[in-house]
Amino acid sequence: MKGNLNDTYTITLDDDVMVHQIIERSTKMKTIGLKDPEELLSRLDDLHPVAVFIDIHLGTGRTGLEILPHLRTAWPFCPILVITGTPAEHSIVKALNSGADDFIRKPLIPDEVDARFKLRMADAAQKAAKEVVEFGDIVIDSAHRTVEGPLGKRFASPIEINLLACLANTEGSIVEKDALKMRCWGQIKVTDNALHRKLHAVRQLLKDISPNVHIETKYGVGFYLKFHGHQQAHLSVAS
């Protein structure tokens, strides 16, 4: 189905159109069916799905598994369910480590597809309810991608918001470097430079909105958010 981009829809990436149709009927929600991972990558900016179903073994160039981190970056809060027809558990583990939320097995069982879809949608709704996070005198609104403090309000990129929300959610605990990469990009292969560039951008952003909240570095361990004047007697490490 082509789908009207103004409606609510899922995306199904699978080279078998039968799978698109079975998922659409099982979830009772329109799906935009695509066969080629590259096509999905080229349309990331135009598409705003409520959930994504993706065959991880698909593709002659990049596989579904390889594009997962890109999907997670583009749609940080969108449930991603991988479809696998291979018994190898390691591919499922890889997919979950690359940003997927859940998996469904082929042959597809309609009731299972629907149950997993509903479960992940409920999770997403729960996350959305927590999308406004307060820390010290700043408020991070992930849904609207804004950060507001006594000095003003700023918009931020999805990764910047993710990074800040992740640090704020741990309420001052240290977040390890790899854990931060995993939460923000969906993978730990991201270079340290990329992480530091994002941290730099977020530090600049914080300066514009509050003089009291800073990202601190615990060398060799990770990063944490600090509210000026707030005593942190003990720093635990969040992973």
Binding site: H57, G85, L108
Partner: peptide, 17 residues
């Protein structure tokens, strides 16, 4: 064969799957 397995399995064509 993976593709054939999937398409047969979806309809319950067990032997072919």
């Amino acid at each position: 064969a993976h593709a054939l397995k999937g398409t047969a399995g979806n309809l319950g064509a067990s032997r072919m799957m």
